[in-house]
Design a protein around this nucleic acid. Structure first.
Lengths: 242, 242
DNA sequence: GTAAGAAATATGGTCAGACCAAACCTTTCA
DNA sequence: TGAAAGGTTTGGTCTGACCATATTTCTTAC
């Protein structure tokens, strides 16, 4: 006679116990049972709710955090975060940090940004709406006004480029922009700055704006490429070899 | 008299103990002390090495895994993975899964892909090297040969597009392609397929190839947009509302 | 009555030791 | 020699405890 183990097999096969908890909490978050921005229940409560040990609960919460569904500060109740495109990009922060330290890492990322942004301005020249162009103009004016103040200029610089990412009305792009600026900022801030440099950069921004307003995709793309490649020359000085 | 606690405070303030372990293991990986593809030391060994409890070690390993520096299968020793661009994209898998379930999520991702790939073919038409074009031709031929077999056709379809992402010689692009195909595949496979449809898709691929070979960026971009937008019409049928 | 300060409690972080089941290694035997 | 049997390692889970800080409650002094 074959021996069949008929034990209830508490948690038999392929899953980690934490995965089940993760799934349940996930669905509670997306269903709205756990309010966005509100605290997660205390670990001890979750133990009761799901009938597992604290070990498992803590592992589940850690997983949730790594997926961006929850934001946990040291010794504070984790905060529930409805998943968004920003969170998706932020999830890559850890690895990208290492990538940036590899030879050519920064250049790969920056080239990708140039590539993307060049396409963005081309499409903007072809299809930007009036209010997009107005928003770009406002950002440009703010950029000009900030020329004497390098710190403020950097902010308006980023804001100007951000408008470009808003034009396609696809939430993926602003998230990508946010991620890129975050990743590249450490190198960017080391770049030497001065009102004269700021003025040059402002003029490049104006070139881009004018080309978009004039519906000239080739000029827009050329202006952006010229602008960002020139900036690269200033940034590359902040590296050691290669 | 004010009471100041002068205890040595074993692990004083702001860090999780696991973070220190994470940092040390990270540097061991990038320094090559832990061979890429090899197993991580057993948890019990790491306990001794770092002088912390198993709780902390396990949390550290989980963090490493979420950052893509380590790959852990259930009940197997974690495998060390030197960080790469693929890992960076894979880190976003969890959140993107939720994004795809939101209304318009798939479309946002797919539109991003179209946008990127259109720019890719435009640039390819302008600057692809001879061997790039040859590789594209080979992928196209394989695609044609697979027309009768829908399963194989899908593979050669993906491979053809993959060549496009290789052309800029920037490792970010292949990683992005891999991520996109992974995220969109679940919907893609539900798309109805047939040799007739395959033939139409092959002809679109041929259009793209011809335009690139003929150095006609506008035609290349138009062909790709037409191809992918048409595909979208077939895919959208696999959704409920919106 | 109220606001500053003190005590009590709640909660996340860490630790220690134990048990299980599956993976891994060693030995044995046909 | 090769496959089965047994023991050992190792990841996954549990329990229960302790610490330090965050939060809440309760005094207390003005």
């Amino acid at each position: 006679m074959t021996k069949l183990s008929l034990k209830p097999t508490p948690r038999p096969r392929s899953d980690r116990a934490a995965d089940a908890v993760v799934r349940q909490i996930e669905s509670m978050i997306v269903a709205g049972d756990l309010a966005d921005g509100g605290p997660l229940p205390p670990e001890r409560d979750l133990i009761e709710t799901f009938g597992v040990s604290r070990t498992v609960v803590r592992e589940a919460v850690a997983t949730l955090a790594s997926r961006g569904l929850v934001e946990s500060r040291l010794r504070f109740r984790p905060v529930v975060r409805r998943p968004g495109y920003d969170a998706a990009m932020a999830a890559a922060n850890g690895v990208v940090g290492h990538l940036l330290e590899q030879a050519g890492g920064v250049k790969n990322l920056y080239d990708t940004r140039i590539f993307l942004e060049a396409s963005l301005v081309r499409q903007a020249a072809l299809g930007a709406r009036k209010d997009d162009i107005e928003a770009l103009k406002r950002a440009l004016d703010a950029n000009e006004a900030a020329i004497p103040n390098s710190g403020l200029f950097y902010q308006t610089d980023v804001a100007f480029h951000a408008v470009l990412y808003d034009i396609p009305k696809n939430p993926v792009f602003p998230a990508v922009h946010k991620a890129f600026t975050g990743w590249l900022a450490p190198h960017w801030v080391k770049m030497p700055r001065s009102p004269e440099r700021n003025r040059v950069n402002f003029l490049r921004h104006a070139d881009i704006y004018n080309a978009i307003r004039d519906r000239d995709p080739d000029a827009a793309e050329a202006a952006l490429n010229s602008h960002l490649h020139a900036a690269w020359e200033y940034v590359r000085g902040t590296f050691a070899a290669t």
